[in-house]
Each structure stands twice: as C-alpha cells, then as structure tokens.
C-alpha cells in the first residue's frame, strides 16, 4: 500500500478505536448508572423497582420528621399530596431541608415500601423548586382534580 494511504489508514483506525472504546465504555457505564426519577404516587402504585438506585422526591410532609436520639438517623415522609413515601437517611441533611420544603433523594426502595436514601438534596435557594418535584406535584394535583371531577359527575347522574 502507498505509504501515505497506509498512514491515513492508521490514523483512521486509531480514531475508530478511540471512538469505539469511548462508546463501549459509555454505554456500559450508562447502563449501570442511570438514576430514574419516581414520584411518591408511582412508588405507592409499585411502579418503582425495589433495590435499584433511583431518585425520588416531593415535599417533606409537615410533622413527619423523626430523629433517632442516639445517632444521625432520621425518618421523614415525602408527599405529592396524593401519596407519600417513608424515607430513611443517616447523615447530615442539607441546610434548606425543612418540613414543607421540596427535596430530591437518591437511594433504594427496600421490600417494605421504605426508601433508604444515601443522599438528600434540597436546593440552596429557598424559592427554588426542583423541576422533578414541581412536575410530580402538578401531576398529582391534576389526577386529584380529574378524580374529584369524576366523582361530581357520578353525583350528577343520580
């Protein structure tokens, strides 16, 4: 083969090798490390997988935060005002974590419908609402509206 062609071929092969290694690694890593978001209603309906690392979020239910007196373990309920899920976390909660505030947590569901979080996020701006939480709340509110609409309709048919 002509030396220049050969050189070009080498370059192209190198590039191809690099790109395919990158693509391979990426797909492999992606498959393992994608964290899907589930809202409390989806978790209550059993749509979320058990013992897979997922994200979940909503509003911290008023009066639901309970601390363990000996350690840093804390339990709280996260709600979209339709359903709620019990979360458990050991560690330091973010500064803006509070009852009635939106949070997003990373963790796994255990068999009993309890969400064991390894990371809890609340945003730094108190007016900030995570888009996921916002969407979950809107969705749940929409569902409630639809349901109450259905009820009133059935009331009319009597």
């Amino acid at each position: 083969m002509h030396p220049i062609r050969k050189k070009r071929l080498t370059i192209v092969l190198f590039l191809l090798a690099g790109v395919s290694v990158a693509v391979g690694l990426t797909t492999y890593a992606l498959r393992q490390n994608i964290n899907l978001f589930y809202d409390p209603s989806q978790i209550a309906e059993g749509e979320a997988p058990v013992d897979v690392r997922i994200r979940a979020g909503g509003m911290v239910e008023e009066g639901s935060v309970r601390r363990d007196p000996e350690s840093l373990r804390v339990e709280f309920k996260v709600t979209d005002f339709t359903s709620s899920v019990l979360m458990e976390y050991t560690g330091i909660l973010p500064d803006l974590f509070a009852e009635g505030q939106g949070v997003v947590a990373m963790g796994r569901l255990d068999g009993q419908g309890r969400f064991v979080a390894d990371q809890v996020l609340a945003k730094h701006d108190e007016n900030y609402m995570s888009p996921e939480v916002n969407e979950a709340l809107e969705k749940a509110a929409g569902k409630r509206a639809a349901m109450s609409g259905a009820e009133s309709e059935s009331a009319v048919s009597y």
């Binding site: 990158a22 690694l25 990426t26 890593a29 992606l30 393992q32 490390n33 994608i34 964290n35 899907l36 978001f37 994200r55 990373m106 888009p131 996921e132 969407e135």
Partner: peptide, 18 residues
Amino acid sequence: MGRLSIGEPFFNLTFSPL
C-alpha cells in the same frame, strides 16, 4: 422520555481510565 440523572459513578468509571 423520562427524567433521569447521570451521576458521579458514570464519570468516574469512564473518565479515570482515559
């Protein structure tokens, strides 16, 4: 097509070898 996040493990796993 859904909300998901790609966290540190993905990048650590792929970036470190490079």
